[in-house]
């Protein structure tokens, strides 16, 4: 008998579009931690694989003004997921994180941290959206053309993968004799020369080919 195909379930926290009904008397806060905790606990009670947070890095505008008809406002993804790791025990914690407006090293460290703090429950929804409007909130500014977006996304994942599997080793024994090594040999060095890492506003890219050594 072959095992029946198992259904995978993600629980999308109601977001900032018109799918979310805020006018219902039963609708609660979209920002209080209790709302996230309740939602996460329900998902875990229902044996979901993961909780899912979407993200948009600039408040939406309509006809030149902030769009006010849908829910507005959401927390920082990493921070709320780290807190949710404390109120759940099995549920995956998936965050939508933009590959254009975050730096690969920092992301790798944040995801590695989340994975430690949740004992192995971190997931990354990689999105590449990069309009100039959103870019105005960031040092990088500007936007990237679609090919460049995915080149940068690939590099971001690459750094995350290499770093995630190559960090220092934790001390093997706290009672090691004085003078003994705390960690093993130097942690591997990651070098990534990235085609898109030097993009500046208006998407001028250094044409350097990517060279990765680890």
């Amino acid at each position: 008998m072959t095992a029946r195909k198992q259904i995978r379930l993600g629980a999308h926290f109601p977001g900032v579009n018109n799918t979310t009904v805020w006018s219902d008397p039963a609708a609660g806060s979209q920002i209080a931690f209790d709302s996230f905790a309740h939602f996460a606990r329900t998902a875990e009670r229902g044996f979901f694989d993961f909780l899912f947070l979407a993200e948009g890095l600039r408040l939406r505008e309509h006809r030149g003004r902030i769009h006010d008809l849908d829910v507005v406002g959401r927390p920082d993804t990493f921070t709320v997921l780290a807190a949710l790791a404390g109120v759940t025990g099995h549920l995956g914690l998936a965050g939508t994180i933009n590959t254009t407006f975050n730096e690969p090293y920092e992301l790798a460290r944040q995801f590695a941290t989340l994975d430690h703090l949740s004992a192995g429950r971190a997931a990354w929804n990689m999105v590449t959206s990069s309009d100039a409007f959103t870019g105005e909130n960031f040092r990088r500014g500007g936007f990237l053309a679609r090919e460049d977006r995915y080149t940068r996304a690939r590099e971001g994942v690459d750094v995350c993968r290499r770093c995630g599997t190559a960090g220092p080793t934790t001390p093997s024994s706290p009672t090691a004799a004085p003078g003994c090594s705390c960690a093993t040999a130097a942690s591997p060095t990651c070098t990534t020369r990235r085609a898109s890492s030097t993009c500046t506003a208006g998407s001028r890219c250094r044409a350097a080919r990517r060279a990765t050594r680890c």
């Binding site: 404390g86 460290r109 590695a112 703090l117 003078g179 705390c182």
Partner: peptide, 28 residues
């Protein structure tokens, strides 16, 4: 800090992102 682990094998190396650690422990 982002300071990478140094060469001294006698020192603890590495640390987690502090804001995330703060969020992890705050509810408790």
């Amino acid at each position: 800090s982002f300071v990478p682990p140094g060469d001294d094998p006698g020192l603890v190396r590495g640390a987690l992102d502090a804001v995330a650690v703060a969020a992890r422990v705050a509810p408790a």
